[in-house]
Design a protein around this nucleic acid. Sequence first.
DNA 1: TTAGTATATGTCAGATCTGATATAGTGTCA
DNA 2: TGACACTATATCAGATCTGACATATACTAA
Lengths: 102, 102
Amino acid sequence: MKKEKIKRLKDAGWKTGTVQEFLELTDAENALIEVRVALFEAFQKIRKEQRLTQKQAAKLLKTSQSRISKMETGDPSVTLDLMIRSLVTLGANKKDFVRIFK
Amino acid sequence: MKKEKIKRLKDAGWKTGTVQEFLELTDAENALIEVRVALFEAFQKIRKEQRLTQKQAAKLLKTSQSRISKMETGDPSVTLDLMIRSLVTLGANKKDFVRIFK
DNA sequence: TTAGTATATGTCAGATCTGATATAGTGTCA
DNA sequence: TGACACTATATCAGATCTGACATATACTAA
């Protein structure tokens, strides 16, 4: 119940505190969501900067268009592992993660 | 063959370029390793700052001492997911990850 | 309207991860 | 020396993830 709501709310511009209180998240749960959101937003940004469709990105990353879509919509079946591996494959380095989390 | 070597080499103070060339890593593989190293070093640092033994940390994180050890030694069976979830459970927030990757 | 392109959603078998357990190694103290 | 605390390593059943596929939805152009 929690997870599906979160992205929509964040995207709708709700303040963190408000979302956290509304969904009764612990600090750790909230931090984890912020990290996830930062990563999937970064991924979509990079893909679009490189003018790739999800299908093209899928080929590069040796996965399927559907998983790319799930990554960008914050689907709970997508792990931080997959997002980070995808980001570095598209060219992100350690330094870029500083910006991603800033 | 690659993965086991990496931590030791990095810990021994080798420069990134050198390790990367020696192990014939792609940029993406190298970036991923740098991210992993940053995370498991950060985890150990936080655990020690909080004066927790691996056993105590394991209880907090609802896992086992052996997995904590694997996390800190960069065992390949440990995912970025687990490391990031553990870090936020010990109190790290998005902002802390800026420092971790800097 | 239809066709074409891009993205989103549902499902699942096979791959990978994880907590748990056992055990080994290391350091310290008496 | 032995006992104890801490950490490292090996193994594996059950849990979770992932690529692939099917299908749906959204948008554009003719």
